[in-house]
Nucleic acid binder design. Structure first.
Length: 325
DNA sequence: GTCCCGGTGG
DNA sequence: CCACCGGGAC
C-alpha cells in the first residue's frame, strides 16, 4: 500500500469526491501527466537552485531545519541562517542542549520567533524520545512541535525519499493552473486540492520526489502568483491555465491579511530586537522598555504575551531579558 | 509610504 | 477563524 501519498488516510476513501475526480478519468490524462513530469524533471535537472540542504548534502535533521526556517520566509533569506545554524548545532541533540537565549538570538530576523522555540522543543523530543534520530513516518513527524502537514510531508519526501504528496501554496498554485486551468484561491488546502495532488503524483517513488521538488521550484521561481513567466515555462504546452488565457491571473486570495504598523506584531518585534541587542545575560530595565513604544497598555500586553510564549523572562523589578534556560 | 506573501497551533 | 514576523514589490 502506498498510503504514504495520503497523510489523512484515517479519512474515508476518496472515491466519490465529486466534481474534481469525477471528470478526470479521461484517457489522455495519464499521457499529459507523464509529459508534464518528464519536462519538469528535465527542467529541474538544469535549473534547480543550489541550496545547501539539497542533493543529499545534509542529514534529515538538516532538511527539517531548512523546512521550518522556510515556512514563512523566502529561501534566499534562509540560506545564511541555515548555514550558521547547522554549523553551530549540527544535530537535534546539540540544539536541544543550547541555551534558549542563544536560540532566539540566532534566529535573528527570520521572523515568527516562536518557530525558533518550537524547533528547539522539536529537537528536545527527537533527542529524548527518538535517540537523536528523526522519525521516519508522517504521523510521528506531525506529532513533533512545530511540524505540521507541509513540513512532515516535505521531510518524508525530500529527506527520506518516500512517496507522499507535498502540498504548499506553490504546489497548489501550479497544479491548479496546469491541470484545472484556474487560480488556487482561499486559505487552507481543500479536499479537492489534496485529491488532485495525490492523483497527479507519479507512481514511481523516485519520480514522486523529483515531482514534488520540481513543481514546488517551478512555483517559486517561474509560475509565480502575479507574473508567471509562461513564455519560458517548460510545461506551457500542457498548461490549461495558459490555454484558457490565464483567467483571473493573480486573483486575490481570501486569506485575511494582517497589517503591521501599530500592531502587536510590531511591538513584540521591537521588544525582542532590543533584547537581542544586549550582551549575553543582560537585562533591559523596565524604564528602557517603556521608551520603546508610546502606548503603555499595548506595550505591557505585548511584554506579557512574549513572556507567555516563553520568548522573554521578567525579573522581580520588571526588567526583561531573553530566557536563560 | 502601501500592499502582499506564508505554515502551524490554538 | 486568526495571531504571528520580516522583507520584497511597487
Amino acid at each position: 500500500m502506498n498510503d504514504t501519498a495520503q497523510p489523512h488516510s484515517d479519512q474515508r476513501p476518496r472515491r466519490s469526491r465529486g466534481t474534481l475526480l469525477a471528470r478526470t478519468p479521461v484517457p489522455e490524462d495519464a499521457a499529459v501527466h507523464d509529459d508534464v513530469a518528464l519536462r519538469l524533471a528535465a527542467w529541474w535537472e538544469s535549473n534547480a537552485r543550489d541550496l545547501p540542504w539539497r542533493f543529499g548534502r545534509t542529514t534529515p535533521w538538516g532538511v527539517l531545519v531548512s523546512e521550518v526556517m522556510s515556512q514563512q520566509t523566502q529561501m534566499s533569506r534562509v540560506v545564511p541562517y541555515w548555514t550558521d545554524w547547522m554549523a553551530r548545532w549540527p544535530d537535534a541533540r546539540a540544539l536541544a542542549d543550547a541555551p534558549k537565549a542563544d536560540v532566539i538570538t540566532a534566529w535573528g530576523r527570520l521572523g515568527y520567533p516562536r518557530r525558533a522555540l518550537r524547533l528547539q522543543e522539536c529537537a528536545q523530543v527527537v533527542a529524548r524520545d527518538y535517540a537523536d534520530e528523526l522519525p521516519r513516518t508522517y504521523d510521528q513527524l506531525t506529532g513533533l512541535p512545530g511540524i505540521g502537514d507541509y513540513t512532515a510531508s516535505a521531510v518524508m519526501s525530500f529527506a527520506f525519499g518516500e512517496r507522499i504528496a507535498v502540498i504548499d501554496t506553490n504546489i497548489r498554485r501550479v497544479l491548479s493552473r496546469v491541470f484545472l486551468g484556474a487560480e488556487s484561491l482561499g486559505g487552507a488546502a481543500s479536499p479537492a486540492e489534496r485529491a488532485l495532488a495525490a492523483h497527479v503524483l507519479p507512481e514511481a517513488v523516485r519520480d514522486s520526489v523529483t515531482w514534488n521538488q520540481s513543481v514546488m521550484e517551478l512555483g517559486a521561481v517561474m509560475c509565480t502568483a502575479k507574473s508567471p513567466m509562461c513564455e519560458v515555462c517548460p510545461i506551457a504546452h500542457d498548461c490549461r491555465f495558459l490555454k484558457l488565457g490565464r483567467p483571473g491571473l493573480g486573483e486575490r486570495r481570501t486569506r485575511p491579511r494582517q497589517r503591521f504598523q501599530g500592531t502587536d506584531r510590531q511591538v513584540r518585534g521591537l521588544v525582542l530586537a532590543a533584547l537581542r541587542g544586549l550582551p549575553a545575560g543582560a537585562t533591559l530595565a523596565r524604564s528602557d522598555a517603556e521608551a520603546l513604544w508610546k502606548d503603555k497598555a499595548q506595550l505591557a500586553a505585548c511584554i506579557a504575551s512574549l513572556d507567555d510564549d516563553g520568548l522573554i523572562e521578567m525579573t522581580e523589578d520588571g526588567a526583561l531579558r531573553l530566557p536563560q534556560g
